[in-house]
Computed example of a mutant assay.
Amino acid sequence: MRCTNCGQENSRDAQVCSNCEQRLANTQAQMPPPLTPVNIAKEAQSVQRGSDSDTADTLLAAFVGEKYDSYYREKWFKNHVPTLDKDVTKMNMRSFNVAGFFLGIFWLCYRKMYIAAALIMLAITVIDLIMMYVLGMESYNVLGQSTFVFVWIVMTGILGNYLYFDHSVRQIQKTTGVTSDPNLIREQLAKKGGTSWVGAIGVSIVIITLSVVLTYFFAPEWYWIE
Rank of each mutant, 00 (worst) to 15 (best):
K78L: 08
G65S: 13
G177I: 07
A25H: 02
G193I: 14
S95I: 01
Q171L: 15
Y216V: 04
T4H: 14
V212Q: 11
Y68T: 11
D13I: 13
E138Y: 01
R12N: 13
R94V: 03
N161V: 03
I153R: 05
L163R: 06
M113L: 12
D181A: 15
Y114L: 13
V88C: 02
G177R: 09
A44D: 04
P182A: 12
D128F: 01
E138I: 02
P220I: 03
W76V: 03
S146Q: 00
S168E: 07
G50R: 09
S139H: 06
G202Q: 05
P32K: 08
N183T: 14
E21N: 14
I40G: 00
S46G: 00
N141H: 04
R170K: 12
L84F: 06
H80F: 11
M137N: 04
I124C: 07
L108A: 14
D13S: 13
C20W: 01
G202D: 03
V16Y: 15
V64E: 13
S180E: 11
Y68K: 03
Y216Q: 12
Q145D: 04
C17N: 10
E21G: 12
S46I: 00
S18Q: 13
A14K: 14
V154F: 11
V203M: 13
C6I: 08
T147M: 10
P37M: 00
A118R: 08
H80Q: 06
L119G: 06
Y133I: 03
T195N: 09
S196F: 04
Q8K: 09
T36C: 01
N19W: 05
C109L: 09
L119N: 06
Q188K: 15
T27H: 03
V88H: 04
I153N: 05
D52I: 15
T55W: 07
G202A: 14
E74Y: 00
Y133F: 07
W197R: 08
N97S: 02
V88T: 11
P37S: 00
T36H: 00
A29I: 02
Y164R: 05
G7P: 02
Q173K: 10
R111Q: 11
A44G: 04
V126E: 03
L108W: 05
T4F: 13
M91V: 09
Q145I: 05
C17D: 13
K78M: 06
F101L: 12
W224V: 13
L143S: 00
I205G: 07
E226V: 10
V213I: 15
G50K: 09
A117V: 11
V178F: 07
N39K: 00
S139G: 01
